[in-house]
Design a protein around this nucleic acid. Structure first.
Lengths: 335, 335
DNA sequence: TTTAGCACTCTTTTTAAGCAACTGCTAATA
DNA sequence: TATTAGCAGTTGCTTAAAAAGAGTGCTAAA
């Protein structure tokens, strides 16, 4: 379909545009990319690439910018996924070697690392609750009138919450709670305790309604917080010229603020480890001018959730994907 | 010093400027504020107020804007601190009645409420560690190789952290830890465990170095997180015309991102409950164009930390201070 | 097939002119 | 003496017009 030179021209235009954010002219290509042809030839190729839908022209006297189709071809066919410097490799290594006791810290570190290197806004969410089974629930008396509930999951996540009472709780009661809750919930997905389940638990310990009601309430609150999103590097938008108009920046930041939106986007990923959504490929209207790369990260087969990078369509796909691939390798102990 | 009419004019100019962000002309004062004098008279007063340093002129053909001295006089002498609507009172009441089990939730709710009503960026930090004494430390086995440490403070704060081991921990060891750590740290301020204290603890349980070292490390990490700042409403900057230039907005958001800066500002408050820093009254260069109102909040004499509101110099001091005063009353059970 | 060259198009920058917003002052008024 | 009407003078803002700049597309030649 595209001959070699056209591919080269397309690649050059895209990479130049990614780095400058300015429409690319035939002259620029000749100057900066050593293709060995004159600007007139490049011009002809660019005109054809435009006809074929890979490039666009903001107006007659401007250069070309890539279309979504252009970016897509670039990502699928032209992309070099080893675009990562020695310093960056070293930095990632150091970061990932930090010792973590809580699995969520690992997600935060990974997210921070990606954002630090790419400068794009990076969001993380925990694993889908159906992939995250309850392994153990522990109730602990912190005082006579204060209880702590700790939920451990198979994936290694730990949720804890505090419940306060107006009357004393006995150690015997606590043991009853430990038994009942584990009995009912162990092995189940980490999801909110629904009404039927609540009734079921209450029926077992019907003399303890006053103790159990607040527990369920607080546990649900803690579980709900599990799908809190973690966000890093949002303010870096200001580094990108496409966000130099205050409304664009505002809009971008407000998208990141809407948890539901982000959850949906991150969870909608296909089975692949890495998914790329370019501009209008995103279903949501608000994301039409942005690109998103998502990355499901796992350690030893355990789902740790999804990390997403959000930036301008002119995102440095090559670097972003290289880094994700490298981190994935590192997380799974390869060298 | 200032006669009544000049005070009225000053107040009118400041309040008009606070609500419009536009330089205020003598004509506007006559139109909107019923002072009973002609624009020429107002003009004369404004000229004198300018000579005295209370007002400034961006240029000849513009109206006047308040100077720092003007705002200061307004805050100290002219301010009405009951500028709060019935709806707002109702909203605050509802919010503050939410049942909280963890004291930090109360701080978050308070911070959110203030930000929701004022639309200014609002930050919160926990109490100064010297005001926050350790009441109890509990170690809990979560599995054979996982320990949870919970620190309770007199103020009602709860910090918990996880420690993982490569070998089994026995219940006997846990009891030893409970005894030793409480023995050494109970009643002490919630501060990082320093080297001498670490040595001291280790000397008591010299056979358990491998168990204790990671505990201290993790506890210090948890304690360090205590002075994490909580931030709400930062993106509301975009609502204020003074931040319509992208650089101003960027600068503002990056100030909020620097934890150290915020800590210093919030902790530097005087003994008063409410402190107001207007523009150049702030020591830090980056804050010269902003105003900050800090609010030390306590419940029943217990220090819960400091909340700060950050916005343009043209902040609605009246509303901000009214709200803080009202919340303070509510938190302490007055009606 | 490739290229030099140039007319043409469209945007951006610059310049100038006219307009609008206020003030400060003068002289009149209560 | 305090207040006010009226108007000249300043300054920034808006609009219009002109000039400059950046690239393309096409033609004709190599």
């Amino acid at each position: 379909m595209l001959n070699d030179r056209k591919k080269q021209v397309l690649q050059a235009v895209i990479e130049e545009y990614i780095s400058t954010a300015e429409p690319v002219s035939s002259g620029t290509i000749v100057e900066k990319y050593d293709l060995g042809f004159s600007s007139a030839t490049i011009r002809n190729d660019m005109a054809e690439l435009e006809n074929m839908g890979y490039l666009e022209k903001p107006h007659t006297s401007a250069g070309r910018i890539p279309s979504v189709k252009g970016y897509r071809f670039y990502v699928d066919e032209l992309l070099n996924d080893e675009n990562i410097s020695l310093e960056e490799i070293q930095y990632i290594k150091t970061q990932l070697e930090t010792k973590v006791n809580e699995i969520e810290d690992l997600t935060k570190i990974t997210t921070n690392t990606i954002s630090d290197i790419t400068h794009y806004a990076t969001v993380a969410i925990g694993p889908n609750s159906t992939n995250n089974l309850i392994k153990d629930i522990k109730f602990i008396l912190l005082g006579e009138r204060m209880l702590m509930a700790v939920i451990l999951t198979e994936n290694g996540a730990i949720k804890e919450t505090i419940i306060k009472y107006d009357e004393d709780i006995s150690q015997t009661q606590v043991e009853g709670l430990n038994f009942t809750f584990n009995n009912k919930l162990r092995g189940k997905p980490l999801e909110k305790i629904d009404k039927p389940m609540e009734e079921y638990i209450l029926s077992t310990m019907s003399d303890q309604i006053n103790v159990i009601k607040p527990i369920i309430q607080q546990m649900n609150k803690a579980i709900e917080e599990s799908d809190k999103i973690y966000l890093k590097g949002a303010n870096n938008v200001f580094d990108f010229p496409e966000f130099k108009k205050i409304d664009t920046a505002k809009n971008f930041l407000s998208i990141l603020d809407t948890k539901e939106e982000m959850l949906e986007v991150l969870n909608s990923g296909l089975a692949k480890d890495i998914n790329v959504y370019i501009g209008e490929e995103n279903e949501r209207e608000e994301l039409k001018d942005l690109s998103i790369v998502t990355f499901k990260h796992t350690v030893g087969g355990k789902d740790l959730g999804t990390i997403g990078i959000i930036g301008p369509k002119r995102m440095n796909y090559s670097k972003v994907i290289s880094i994700m691939k490298y981190i994935n390798k590192k997380l799974n102990g390869e060298n």
